[in-house]
Nucleic acid binder design. Structure first.
Lengths: 132, 132
DNA sequence: GCTTGACATTCCCATCGTGGGAAGGTTTAG
DNA sequence: CTAAACCTTCCCACGATGGGAATGTCAAGC
């Protein structure tokens, strides 16, 4: 199949498929006589793998590692779990950051009238009425 | 004060101060005879305002709006609250996404032995043993 | 056969916030 | 006078994605 079909069949855009190939996440695709990239069912499978990994928030470098573990039948599941573990730690850090921001904002929102008056605790806070 | 002092005093790097000026978030700084940027206490205050807004996750375009509301004594707090409200919605979206990823990963982690055996439910899932 | 439209190719540029580093000028302390 | 610690501008990089231009190819309809 051509790249368009591979894209719609995998959920990875054609643009991204080319990019993944360019950065070495995917091996160079086979080419038709006219130079069109051609994809097999196995290629599609790999693309879907990548897509799912992206959906879980893995970065492309880690995905490259996951793909190679996936294709290595002698892998140790320990290695996979380590990658997932490191990733989940990163996600939890981000989560904590986000929760901090949301919590702070919610508090400010609760104090701000949000009407035609100019007084605004949100701006006051940003301006550095810092609580030590 | 010079840019280095403004940077350490505000928590915004010198690099970023120049960048903020370049994109118009900050007005062009005053210059010494030799061309060095010079900052006043008021400038420092603005830098700290920006820093705090960044800490709450606001993007620079929104921060520009916040700064101008801050400096407009006739503002309506409604406008500030609207910006904050839109931002908090964005953050909550990201939060939900993160939570989804973390939840999915946790489940997979719980199923994976993580030992020397090659069987790995994490890879299986990525490979698309999709549950409909 | 020829046109047309839907595909494909490569290449460059943009996003967003941040940092690295080069090549050069200034200021200050010893 | 020199060395260190500043400062300047300029260009490039990240990570993942998209937009779009200029160009080439394929399949269907007339």
């Amino acid at each position: 199949m051509n790249i368009g079909e591979a894209a719609s069949g995998s959920g990875v855009s054609a643009k991204m498929i080319r990019h993944y190939e360019a950065i070495g996440l995917l091996p160079p695709a086979a080419r038709s006589e006219a130079g069109y990239r051609r994809y097999s069912g196995a290629d599609l499978h790999t693309l879907r793998f990548i897509r799912h990994a992206r959906d879980l928030g893995f970065d492309l470098a880690t995905i490259a590692a996951l793909v190679s573990l996936w294709q290595d039948r002698g892998r140790e599941s320990r290695e996979v779990k380590q990658l997932a573990d490191a990733h989940i730690a990163t996600l939890r850090d981000k989560l904590a950051q986000l929760q901090g921001m949301i919590g702070a904002l919610e508090q400010l929102m609760a104090c701000c009238h949000g009407d035609e008056r100019p007084e605004c605790p949100i701006l006051d806070e940003l301006a550095g009425i810092d609580k030590p």
